[in-house]
Amino acid sequence: MSVEAELLWAEKYRPKTLDEMVNQEEIVSRLKQFVKTKNMPHCLFAGPPGTGKTTAAHCLARDLYGPEYHRWFLELNASDARGIEVIRTTVKEFARSIVPGPVPFKIIVLDEADNMTADAQQALRRLMEMYTSTCRFILIANYPSKIIEPIQSRTAFFRFTPLKPEDIIARLKWIAEQENVKYDEEAIKTIYEVSEGDLRRAINILQAASALGGRVTVEAVYKVIGRAHPKEIREMIRLALSGKFMEARNKLREVMINYGLSGLDVVKQIHREIFSSDMKLPEDLRVLIADYAGEVQFRLVEGADDEIQLSAFLARLALLGKKFRV
């Protein structure tokens, strides 16, 4: 019996062409227009995670160049490519080589562009102007407001909206059917709810839940969520609030070093946790913590050491815990 190698479903069922994209209809039709005229401006794709921004860029490229589109397509992630220097050299090399193709330009995708500093974005702007005759840039961002004005004004803006519940549910059901996975109607709804409109997360949960073996039930979904989202963050908050700072800091190190979570991930998870109904906290305390979480998130962007900023957060929690006697 030959065994089929498996991929993550988020990759396996990623639309390959614009026609396969089942949502963002308005955006898709504008992009199809580019394919038809074989020309396009620089673009800015903005919207929440898992709404199809990167997928749309790939589909567009495939429709323009065919299945071998990678020859004319460069994908960089601003979070991974350290500094504008790396981006500059990579882009330069890519833009310089001439590969005759179906359209007279290449596409450079810069993902998570809103993670670039303002200075790096200025340098990027010059880069966009320098290579405008041979390359088109597609910038991808969660928060378009973090993209500097001169870049915004040089790009065609595409706002990706959160996917509609029925779209996500339909997609999950379709994937389950392709995979011959049995599911409860309620389970799919639960996946939608916990994925917060992020299709990639929803598909990951579905795949993990089905891997538990047997039918995908509400129970299976919660089992996956429980195991994938470690309890450490919640424990850390509890320890800090009860004044056990040292233990809380050990938990912090555990999640950051052992799980590899970034400081930003930790703050966001703390933020999520303090509003969860499992945490019994006075409402005004929730608000105070949330306010400070926002401050810490801002500082993380500016600071040098995530652990110091988050330890300060834990120290704050310990103080608030004492005041509120939780």
Partner: peptide, 9 residues
């Protein structure tokens, strides 16, 4: 998956 390493983690 065409995401950043941080998102992958």
């Amino acid at each position: 998956l065409h995401i950043s390493s941080a998102t992958a983690k």
